[in-house]
Simulated assay, not measured.
Amino acid sequence: MGTTIRWGVLGAAAIAVERTLPAMKKAPSAELAALASRDPAKGRRIADALGIARVHASYEALLADPHIDAVYVPLPNRLHFEWSVRALEAGKHVLCEKPLCMRADEVRRLIEVRDRCGRHIEEAFAYRNHPQWEKLDELLARGAIGAPRSAHLTLAKRFMDPADIRNQLEQGGGALYDLGSYALDAIGRVFRRAPRRVVAALDRDPQFGTDRLSSVLLDYGDAHALLTVGTQAGTAAWGTHQQFSVMGETGWLRMDFPYAHARSTACTLELGDASSVGSLPTETFRFEPADHYVLQIERFSQLLLGEPVASHPIEQSLAIATITEAIFASAQSGGWQAVDRQAPHLGA
């Protein structure tokens, strides 16, 4: 592969054009080599603006390009599984936007394809690469707050445009698939296992049919987690409203900007130990603005080049998809839903 990973991108989705493609231009171990667009004129405009050498008129043509090592998939949610499979079978490594798949059985099939093809695939949670999460992992590992007993997570923003994929049921829209995937992934980093059961309440938009407000209680037996996500609530600003806190046996942790940063922003992680009172922290860890889209592309590229960096196997995605299915089943039945005990541990 040489000293850089040559990236190809399927489609010109907003998240790709605004965040991930510019990140590929900045990451030292990455080369943004090709873009595929079914709208040739749009593809050419984007390629010219970002200095992309090759534009393919079809996704198939990009996958057949021998000068591509890894493929980024930012297509509509319902297409993630198909094109991830096709990319792996074409011999490409894959970074696919979340949610990786719409169903747990699709993730299982992706794992089989990954193992058969010998290529690496991850779900694109850019926030995982922010240094504040390394600090949280460190604090939990050394028992700074004792064993986690409860976590509270919120993400919300007003997405009112009918053309927004979050408002298109047939494309896999809705709060739980879009924002809930962040929350479930983050919960996994805290508890490192799947819950025993979940109970959920979903409010659906009468026009779009998507869940616009979803709240879930996750029961781990000796611990609980509560998440609420909304696509028609909270801020209408450039970033989602976000909250994240963990209560442990002997203290607590809280982040003020935990998940996706649409714009790189300074943020803090607060620790309360046995001496703290109210919500006043004992210690505050401050982080300068960091582009975690650049950090994601650089880490993924370094991983493919054989560097000793973090890896996020899609067994984590299987756990998220399994829990998501239980959440939808609970909302439909109106009661507790057991989580498949075959679900792998989260946060691995």
Rank of each mutant, 00 (worst) to 15 (best):
T3V: 05
T4E: 07
R6G: 06
W7D: 03
G8S: 05
V9Q: 01
L10V: 04
A16W: 00
L21G: 00
L21W: 04
L21T: 02
A23S: 05
S29V: 10
L32N: 02
A33L: 07
A36L: 03
A36T: 01
A41Y: 02
A41W: 03
G43N: 03
R45E: 09
A49M: 00
I52G: 03
I52A: 00
R54V: 04
R54L: 00
V55S: 03
H56L: 01
A57D: 09
E60I: 11
A61H: 00
H67G: 06
I68L: 04
V71G: 07
Y72E: 03
Y72V: 08
Y72L: 08
V73K: 04
P74C: 04
L75P: 02
L75S: 06
R78W: 06
F81P: 00
L88F: 01
L88I: 02
H93L: 04
V94C: 05
C96G: 06
C96W: 09
E106H: 06
R108I: 03
I111N: 01
E112H: 06
R116W: 12
C117G: 10
G118L: 07
F125R: 09
R128Q: 11
R142F: 11
I145D: 12
A147L: 12
S150Q: 15
A151Y: 12
L153I: 15
L155G: 10
R158K: 13
F159Y: 07
R166W: 05
G173I: 01
A175S: 11
L176I: 04
L179G: 13
G180N: 07
Y182N: 13
L184S: 04
D185I: 06
A186N: 09
G188D: 05
V190G: 11
V190M: 12
R197K: 13
V198I: 08
V199L: 07
A200N: 03
D205M: 10
R212M: 10
R212I: 13
S215I: 10
H224T: 15
H224V: 15
T228E: 12
Q232A: 07
A236W: 04
W238Q: 13
G239Q: 09
T240V: 09
M247A: 15
L253I: 14
R254D: 09
R263L: 15
R263Y: 09
S264D: 15
T268C: 15
G272N: 14
D273K: 11
D273Y: 08
S275Q: 11
P281K: 14
P289C: 13
P289Q: 12
D291S: 10
E298K: 08
R299T: 15
F300N: 08
L303W: 14
L304A: 12
E307N: 12
P308K: 14
P313T: 01
I314W: 05
S317Q: 05
L318E: 06
I323R: 02
E325W: 01
G334E: 02
W336N: 09
Q337N: 02
A338T: 11
P344F: 06
L346N: 11
L346C: 11
G347I: 14
